[in-house]
Amino acid sequence: MPGRELYIDRLRVVMTALVILHHTALTYGAIGGWFWRELDPSASVSSRLLILFCTTNQAYFMGFFFLLAGYFTPLSLERKGYARFLCDRFLRLGIPLLAFGLFLGPLTAAIVEAFQGRSFWGTFVWLWNHKQFINGPLWFAQALLIFSLAYCLWRKLAGAPLTQSERAPKLVPSNIWWIISAIAVGAIALLIRQFVPVGVNVWGLQLAYFSSYIFLFALGIAAWRHDWLRQLTWKNSRLSILRATLFWIAMPVATYFLATHSGGGSGKSNVPSGLSVSAIFYAFWEPLVAWGLIAAWLLAFRKWQNQPSNLWSWLGRRAYAVYIIHPVILVLISLLLHGWAAPALIKFTATGSLTIVACWLLSDPLVRLPGLRRIV
Results as ranks from 00 to 15, higher is better:
W291S: 14
A290N: 09
S46H: 11
G292V: 06
K170Y: 06
Q231M: 09
F100D: 02
Q231Y: 01
N201I: 01
T108C: 07
G263L: 04
S363W: 09
D364T: 13
D227G: 09
L372N: 05
F124L: 12
L104K: 01
H23F: 12
R12V: 03
A342K: 12
G265C: 04
G33V: 06
R373E: 10
Q194P: 04
Q164R: 12
F257A: 14
L311Q: 04
S47A: 13
F348R: 04
A187Q: 08
P96M: 06
L191M: 10
R318S: 09
T255Q: 01
A168N: 11
W224R: 14
A143P: 01
T233L: 03
F281G: 00
R10D: 06
W228D: 08
F301Q: 03
Y82G: 00
Y60K: 01
Y60M: 11
Y28M: 11
A110N: 01
R302H: 14
R243V: 05
G159I: 05
W312Y: 07
L11P: 03
P169E: 09
L144Q: 08
W36V: 13
V198I: 07
L91R: 15
A295V: 01
A110V: 03
W234Q: 05
W228Y: 10
P74V: 11
Y213F: 15
E5C: 01
P2F: 11
L369S: 03
Y320W: 07
K131G: 02
V328C: 12
K170L: 15
G220I: 05
K156D: 01
H23Y: 13
S212C: 07
A189R: 12
A150D: 00
I329D: 07
G94E: 05
F61I: 09
F120I: 02
W297T: 05
R167W: 11
A341Q: 15
P96N: 03
S313W: 02
V185Y: 11
F284H: 15
G33W: 15
S273R: 12
F217T: 11
L127T: 01
A160Q: 11
P197M: 05
V125I: 05
G32L: 02
L372S: 08
N306W: 03
R89E: 07
Y320P: 05
V185H: 08
W340Y: 08
I176L: 11
G105K: 13
F195K: 12
R10S: 10
L39P: 00
Y256P: 00
A182L: 08
G117A: 03
